[in-house]
Nucleic acid binder design. Structure first.
Lengths: 200, 200
DNA sequence: CCGATAGTGAACGGTGCGTTCACTACATGC
DNA sequence: GCATGTAGTGAACGCACCGTTCACTATCGG
């Protein structure tokens, strides 16, 4: 029968199951109330298997977040509609924050104390794909003359994600569509848009 | 003698002592490792006195942060030097984040789950005085013609604090002077500055 | 098919939580 | 200045979860 041998998992297989369990628990109870025992039970794994891999809750959650973060972002091709493209990406990021992944990030932030290689790694693994996409959009806009070349400055490229992340971290939920539009129309677009070419 | 009667404190007196102890502990061990017993011991108070006032660690820290936040910010008068004024205020905020207060904020963020009246209150009690100061600076700049009137938009007024807070939350430490200058020169000033009055 | 490797599940001591209780210091009204 | 109520102390307690250990078992590779 199907019950007799429950098919014991190992290695990456098991690891993925643990990540899934951790993220599911995060969604249900939040980082602060995450119990290692609950994660283990949910993953149908022994606690020892968790502690064999990660020294504590913080590292487990960080690893789970990194796991999710590295799942390939769909490659994005600018459509030429600058505002529309930015809006789509920003909504995508906000939607991601509404996910267990967002809860993992919140927990990670709460636990941060000193700059560690691991936490730097998590941060860049989240930022890098976002930077790539925004840079692509801005490059496209620059080529079309709608965006100022200065928009490619790293801090500027990171601005939109920064606004979304800050909003998410300091409230209970991600920015909704209206807030995203405000970010766009009041901050991002005014900053990056090329002047209306008066003498061209 | 001085030792015989240790002068038992009550009410606000005791409460302040507890806040001080909590903030000192936060500075030493961080939010994640904050122990109620340690706070009580440091404040030379009974645990019961803590739990009489706040239901748990999260509420205590939130209250301590609010307590610090409402300590009056020195009233700031714009000097006319837009960049210099902004730089001074931003450095002030960054310095505040390097303080136990910053650690309290980090803990509060990590614990946030749903929008509660208390957490909204903490957020606005931090934002409001900052908004007042930045608005004052921008108004002054508008009067002098160096700042665009659109700078008074709430999201724009909040931009500089947002950048600082996001930086602080996602790293182990607050923005240093160089980062602040980059925020100013690459984001804030380009966004708020009035165009160089070509036809005036 | 056998040895090595990796996972399971239960048990354990330790620690901090949040509560309770008998006791004590201070504050107030008389 | 004495009696009474109020607020704080400090120790103790049960509990939940932590992180570890161990005897056992399933799976993998040769």
């Amino acid at each position: 029968m199907s019950e007799s041998t429950p098919a014991r998992r190992r290695g990456d297989d098991l690891e993925r199951a643990i990540f899934d369990a951790a993220l599911a628990e995060l969604a249900e109870v939040g980082y602060a109330n995450l119990r290692m025992e609950a994660v283990a039970a949910r993953a149908k794994a022994g606690k020892a298997s968790l502690y064999k891999r990660w020294p504590d809750r913080a590292h487990l959650v960080q690893a789970a977040a990194r796991h999710k973060a590295t799942e390939v972002e769909p490659d994005f091709e600018p459509s030429g509609d600058l505002r529309g493209d930015l809006r789509a990406i920003m909504r995508h990021i906000a939607a991601q924050q509404a996910t267990p992944f967002g809860e993992a990030i919140r927990g990670w932030v709460g636990e941060l104390r000193s700059t560690s290689a691991e936490s730097e790694e998590l941060r860049t693994s989240i930022e890098t794909p976002r930077i790539r996409i925004f840079a692509k959009i801005y490059e496209d806009g620059i080529a079309r003359g709608t965006v100022r070349p200065e928009a490619l400055n790293p801090r500027v490229v990171n601005l939109a994600p920064t606004l979304l992340t800050h909003y998410f971290l300091t409230r209970a939920e991600p920015a909704n569509d209206e807030v995203i539009d405000e970010f766009l129309d009041q901050i991002v677009l005014p900053l990056i848009s090329a002047p209306p070419t008066p003498a061209d």
